[in-house]
Simulated scan of single mutants.
Amino acid sequence: MRKIVNLTNPKDEIVRLMIYNDDDFGVYLFGYKKIVDCSSEFDELYDSENEVMESCETEYGIKKTEWKEIPNPEPNCQHDWINPVRIKGSESGNPEFGKFEKRINGKWIEFKLKK
């Protein structure tokens, strides 16, 4: 499960954080400048979830009890998005980097990232 929290007191324009446990690499912390579902502004890699949570408590004042669990991303989907978003063609092994799709009403629809 991933974990997410909205910051009560934003810091350096960061208003939301997400933790993702990757079985192969470690634990990622994603930071966002928007509350709406979007691509993260940054990611940091840690050895453990506990290490991430301790860092977030020090850096952002987030208590461990404030984090909410959300489902892990679906196969071939971006880890830092809440809803299913993937690189176009990733499911067939032919990724078109810079092009993204999101699932809307069961269909994959191409869209442009907004900055």
Rank of each mutant, 00 (worst) to 15 (best):
E13H: 12
P71I: 09
L29N: 06
K102R: 15
F42N: 14
E57Y: 15
V36I: 12
M1R: 13
K33W: 00
I87G: 03
N105V: 01
V27L: 09
Y60P: 10
N83G: 04
N83E: 12
G93D: 06
I87M: 03
F42V: 05
I4C: 08
K107T: 07
Y60Q: 03
G61N: 08
G98N: 05
W108S: 06
C56G: 01
P73I: 04
N76V: 01
N94R: 06
F100I: 05
G31W: 02
K114N: 11
E74N: 10
K107W: 01
S48V: 02
C38N: 15
K64N: 11
I87F: 07
Y46T: 04
N105G: 06
E66Y: 07
W67M: 05
E51W: 03
R2T: 04
V15T: 10
N9K: 15
E101K: 09
K114Y: 01
E59L: 11
N72A: 13
Q78I: 09
W108V: 09
Y20Q: 01
K34M: 04
Y20R: 07
G106I: 00
F42D: 12
V5M: 06
N72G: 12
Q78P: 00
K34V: 01
K114I: 12
K102A: 07
Q78N: 10
N21H: 14
M1K: 12
V52F: 14
H79F: 09
L29A: 00
I82T: 15
F25H: 07
S48P: 06
F100T: 03
K63C: 08
I82A: 13
I35S: 10
F42G: 04
K99G: 05
G98L: 05
M18H: 04
I70Y: 05
N9Q: 15
M18A: 10
E59Q: 14
K63A: 07
D24P: 00
P71M: 11
W81N: 11
I4W: 05
I70L: 06
D23I: 09
V52P: 00
K3F: 11
C38A: 15
P71V: 09
G98M: 09
F25Q: 05
F25E: 01
N9H: 15
N83P: 00
D24Y: 14
E110N: 13
K88Y: 03
D22N: 12
D47P: 06
K63M: 08
I14C: 12
M53C: 12
K33H: 13
G106Y: 06
F100A: 02
Y60I: 13
I35W: 07
E41M: 11
M53D: 02
E110D: 06
I35M: 08
D47T: 07
D23P: 01
W67A: 07
N21D: 09
N105Q: 10
Y32G: 02
P84H: 11
Y32Q: 01
V15N: 10
S40I: 06
G89Q: 07
I82E: 14
S92D: 03
G26Y: 09
R2K: 13
W81C: 15
P84D: 12
P84T: 10
T8R: 15
K88S: 11
G106Q: 08
K3D: 01
R86G: 04
F97Y: 13
L45K: 09
T58W: 14
M53H: 00
E69A: 04
G98V: 00
G106F: 08
K99T: 04
K114E: 15
R103Q: 15
Y32N: 04
E57C: 11
C77F: 07
L7T: 10
E41V: 14
D22A: 08
Y28H: 13
S55Y: 14
W67Q: 08
